[in-house]
């Protein structure tokens, strides 16, 4: 074990993993801050409006000071929690790129004039790779489930704290609310359960590290062979890690008043299938391999209701974390006598 040396020169590599304990601790702190803010605000309002002789917050601070303090805790705790959730699973470069390109609906881009109905994929090549020329952006943000769990945990416990204040106020003013008091116990159980669920989601999401996919050329062409590199970060044991090259048809159609999307895999080429891997923060799993596009394959295609999409899919069955699946779109252009133009 190496002890940190604050006086030494900062060292490291671009593959440095995220500190799991730090992420979880930070989220727990800001969740506690948010809930404390809810509690203080509810208590202060109850003290002011329920009974004049009721003073559980005998702090000597005025009403407005307590209200401002509670609102500040709510805002700081809530904002930091939301930002923390957003930071999980997305690098700062990617977030920055998303902010700059917020007006673009799709990461794969719109068709160009040179290849009509073929996505240009300019957003796929704006990030240089560490090993190979381009680092491909993924399309799946792993924090959706975490955000939902955080929202549920905070809202449920905020409501519970407000009800607790109402019950305390009732006892204080000699008008106890027995039914509400009895209801608080099962509600507290649910509150603990949703908090534990949130903590579990947080650990899982933070534990499954980023997936990096790089490629030496882009866009691709049918019949071409390209060098690709995949790295999986995090701290986990993987039962299985699979890398696939997938070509998928996508059709959008109306069914009654609904708009439905149907997908069909027309090609699924397993590039790599490995079992029983151990990944440490300091030792990510990485592999370089060849990616061959079949010569008879269809190129990428996009029209308003139909598409043919190519992507590299990295999926893993992990323990103790849940399975993950990251998708990295690539653009396959038709073969042509036109000179190939590097997007960079």
């Amino acid at each position: 074990m190496r002890f940190p040396k604050p006086w030494s020169k900062k060292r490291g590599s671009r593959l440095a993993g995220r500190a799991l304990a730090g992420t979880v601790g930070e989220a727990a702190f800001f969740a506690a801050l948010f809930l404390t803010g809810v509690f203080i605000l509810a208590l202060t309002l109850a003290q002011r409006f329920v009974a004049s002789d009721w003073s559980p917050l005998a702090t000597g601070l005025g009403f407005w000071i307590l209200v401002v303090l509670a609102i500040a805790m709510l805002v700081v705790g809530g904002t930091a929690l939301v930002l923390g959730v957003l930071q999980i699973g997305a690098s700062s470069e990617r977030r920055n790129a998303f902010v700059r390109k917020a007006e673009e609906l799709e990461i794969i881009g719109k068709p160009g004039a040179e290849f009509p109905a073929v996505p240009r994929g300019v957003n796929l090549t704006d990030s240089p790779g560490m090993r190979l020329t381009y680092r491909l952006p993924g399309t799946v943000w792993p924090g959706k489930r975490l955000a939902a769990a955080a929202a549920l945990a905070l809202m449920w416990n905020a409501v519970w704290l407000v009800l607790l204040v109402v019950v305390i106020a009732g006892f204080w003013s000699d008008r106890p609310r027995w039914v509400l008091t009895a209801l608080l116990f099962p509600m507290a159980g649910v509150g603990v359960w949703v908090l534990r669920h949130y903590a579990r989601c947080l650990r899982e999401t933070a534990g499954v590290g980023a997936t990096i996919v790089e490629i030496d050329q882009h866009p691709l062409q049918p019949g071409g062979t390209y060098r690709a590199y995949v790295a999986q970060l995090g701290r986990m044991n993987l039962r299985r890690l699979r890398i696939e090259l997938v070509c998928e048809e996508e059709s959008t159609f109306r069914q009654g008043t609904d708009i439905r999307i149907d997908r069909n895999r027309v090609l699924s080429q397993i590039i790599l299938d490995q079992y029983d891997l151990t990944i440490d923060p300091g030792r990510p799993w990485e592999q370089e391999f060849d990616l061959t596009i079949p010569s008879e394959a269809m190129h990428s295609f996009r029209s308003p209701h139909n598409a043919v999409q190519w992507k590299v899919i990295v999926s893993g069955e992990a323990r103790p974390w849940p399975s993950f699946c990251q998708s990295f779109p690539v653009v396959v252009q038709p073969t042509t006598r036109l000179p190939r133009r590097s997007p960079r």
């Binding site: 048809e249 069909n264 269809m298 190129h299």
Partner: peptide
């Protein structure tokens, strides 16, 4: 040069 004629399953 695109889109090329295509005979797929859904499309």
């Amino acid at each position: 040069v695109s889109p090329l004629s295509y005979e797929g399953n859904l499309l």
